[in-house]
Design a protein around this nucleic acid. Structure first.
Lengths: 117, 117
DNA sequence: TCGTTAGTTCCGAAGTTCTGAACTATGGGA
DNA sequence: TCCCATAGTTCAGAACTTCGGAACTAACGA
């Protein structure tokens, strides 16, 4: 198990952020980390809405979020703690994350029935 | 050649917008349509930076932007005219497009050497 | 009608994502 | 110390997506 890789904030690319958040599952995970401040384990988000995401997929989603520069993961004993890097990303790309999160929220409000988020 | 399909603005999904703009080529095309107000033909954007994009890829990129609800295309004789749907998208997801476009602009300013946009 | 220009569609190659199975790492209890 | 349980990662193959050349359609002008 190699250690986690987190890009420096100046290496964070807008396309990576958009790609990471263009998946509704990942956007829901990120929103959860945002609102909770810190999510203690993958298992805490393993069920988004009514759908269970396999561990391996979840691990991959966290990796994508991490490599996009959106979250910071640390191992604490057997678990992983994930913190959002909102402040850093906000400094680099002002308003971006807020606009994306509120777009998903707006869509959840108007759409037919969206399980996640 | 089937006619162009444009989603109603209430059917536009944030994930489709993020996916469409998570490709730097498409983001550059969209930025070009935005700044020009209207782009007269695919050929007008066929060279983004120093890289020539094949016609078929360009056609696909326009299709993705169209189906994401970001642009409106009309055939005028032999050419296609593309307008941005900024106002509609802005009403539905306030601040989203501005944040994305300015994130790419910020990145172009700090990054090593970005050809497009 | 023919040639040109503009764009779309098709289809195979290349790349990406998803997921179950096997694996690694840590902590706790006997 | 050993063994087990829990948490997460890695691997590999299947499924899906994207790319790009070739062939096609559609409109226009000579």
């Amino acid at each position: 198990m190699r250690p986690f890789v987190h890009p420096a904030i100046e290496d964070v690319q807008p396309e990576a952020i958009l790609h990471a958040l263009s998946d509704p599952n990942r956007a829901a995970i990120f929103a959860k980390i945002m609102t909770a401040g810190c999510v203690e384990a993958c298992s805490a988000v393993s069920a988004l809405g009514d759908r269970v995401i396999p561990k391996s997929s979840l691990s991959m989603h966290f990796k994508v979020l991490r490599e996009a520069g959106l979250i910071r993961s640390e191992r604490h004993g057997v678990e992983m703690r994930n913190h959002s890097r909102w402040d850093e990303v906000e400094t680099r790309f002002p308003g971006l994350l807020a606009a994306i999160i509120s777009a998903y929220a707006a869509d959840a409000g108007t759409g037919p029935c969206r399980s996640g988020a």
